[in-house]
Amino acid sequence: MKALVCIGHVPDTTSKIRFTDNDTKFDNTDIQYIIGPYEELALTRLLDIKDSGTDVHITAVNVGPVETEATLRKALAMGADEAVRVNAEPADAVFVAKQIAEVFKNGEYDVIVTGKESIDYNGSQVEGMIAEFIGLPSVSGASLFEIDGDKVKMEQEIEGGKQVLNATFPFVVSAGKGFALEPRIPNMRGIMMARRKKLDVVEPVEQNNMTEVVKHYLPEAKPQCKMVDPENVEELVRLLHEEAKII
């Protein structure tokens, strides 16, 4: 199996979010960038399958400027075989999906694996967009991915439950919670080997941006928490009823 796994370059989940340039841009100061948590699960699952003896070749792909290469190197250190960076600012989800669809067409891949959603713009967009650009089936938010010969068993979240699915290559799948259990942490050998692995840089194909982010806001500060005496919990019930009018 040849897999193309999309690697998001996103602020660490513990980051304090701030904006700059009149709230038009994300403030990078002191921000650590990481592989998106769902993409980490996606890559981990593919590596687990490889370790269990199945022939898997993994290419990590990212659309971004040169700074994102550190994140791709981390994917290589985790165990991906090679990486491709599409050299462009990721203008919007349609733009990114178009680039990844192009990388897919230029290789001989069986499957594209993405994360369920990016943790910056929370789009949950790219998997379906790539699939539509290429004309492939898509499976969203998969919580299981098991290979059995030429069939892949997956579970997809639906409202109020899940669907158990059987697919044959090629298709696009986004990884949700449960795709892999614990994300893999690169070891020293992996980090050393990652330096020598192939990282190709390709130029983007043309695609108009359909959307642009023009302003950011932080959530309004909450008024101070009203403290209730633990000996007088009836007061909390009264507040929820009379003040918050929620019960």
Partner: peptide, 22 residues
């Protein structure tokens, strides 16, 4: 929700549209 997240992005590409998610 799960169906919206699965269908909206595909429809966006199919209709040459732009998507605001969430």
């Amino acid at each position: 929700n799960p169906s919206g997240r699965a269908v909206a992005p595909r429809l966006t590409v199919k209709m040459n549209a732009g998507l605001a998610a969430g």
